[in-house]
């Protein structure tokens, strides 16, 4: 019998910034406004939400109908995030890939704004934003890992990777990934295309 996580749509992926990259959050506000004008990233882009005043918060968000982009600082870790809200086509692996691609496209564009926005390229944080379909437990983990492993093999071109989960059952199902080697955002995205 398949696990409910197969139906997961609300997926969130964050690519942490490289060590030493600590851009001012405010600096990304005009960038996101420009993205809305230029329709630079996928989705129906609505507005920019500024949470730079919140310590360890969601930073600055670009709100879109389908999913939100952010230069995120949740728990003090800076990264480029895409949180999907609306359904995607395809199986779980394809949906995961689509969410990663959206985040990586944003990361690629941000990297063009300056070196301080560069992602580490060998890490990502993934969360199932749906506690009904994906409670943070061992069952979900067992069902999800094989799918994620296949995706990570593509993303990191077969490089070894470690997975780590915050096992607090109240948290969303989550995995932090660290690969033995990485690449820049554009390369990573091409590998998933």
């Amino acid at each position: 019998m398949s696990h409910p996580i197969e139906d997961l749509q609300r997926i969130s992926v964050k690519f942490p910034l490289a060590m030493g990259c600590e851009p001012e959050l405010d600096g990304v506000i005009p960038v996101f406004h420009r993205w809305i004008q230029d329709r630079a990233v996928d989705g129906m882009l609505i507005d920019v939400a500024d949470y730079a005043h919140v310590p360890q918060g969601p930073g600055v968000m670009l709100i879109a109908h389908e999913g939100n982009y952010a230069l995120d600082l949740d728990r003090g870790r800076l990264g480029v995030l895409y949180a999907r809200k609306q359904p995607l086509a395809g199986d779980l692996e394809q949906r995961l890939a689509a969410v990663c691609c959206a985040a990586l496209r944003a990361a690629e564009l941000l990297a063009g704004e300056g070196e301080q926005f560069r992602i580490a390229g060998d890490q990502l944080e993934i969360a199932a934003n749906d506690r009904l379909l994906a409670p943070n437990d061992a069952d979900t983990d067992s069902a999800f890992r094989p799918v994620l492993d296949r995706l990570l093999d593509r993303l990191f071109d077969g490089a070894a990777h470690e997975l780590c989960r915050d096992e607090d059952p109240r948290e969303r199902f989550n995995l932090h990934v660290r690969a033995s080697s990485g690449a820049d955002a554009a390369t990573l995205r091409q590998r998933l295309a």
């Binding site: 939400a49 949470y51 918060g57 969601p58 709100i63 934003n129 749906d130 109240r170």
Partner: peptide
């Protein structure tokens, strides 16, 4: 408070 946190995360902007 736990539930409010969950709802903000899953349906809002985590705030």
């Amino acid at each position: 408070m736990d539930v409010l946190a969950d709802l903000a995360e899953e349906y809002s902007d985590a705030i």
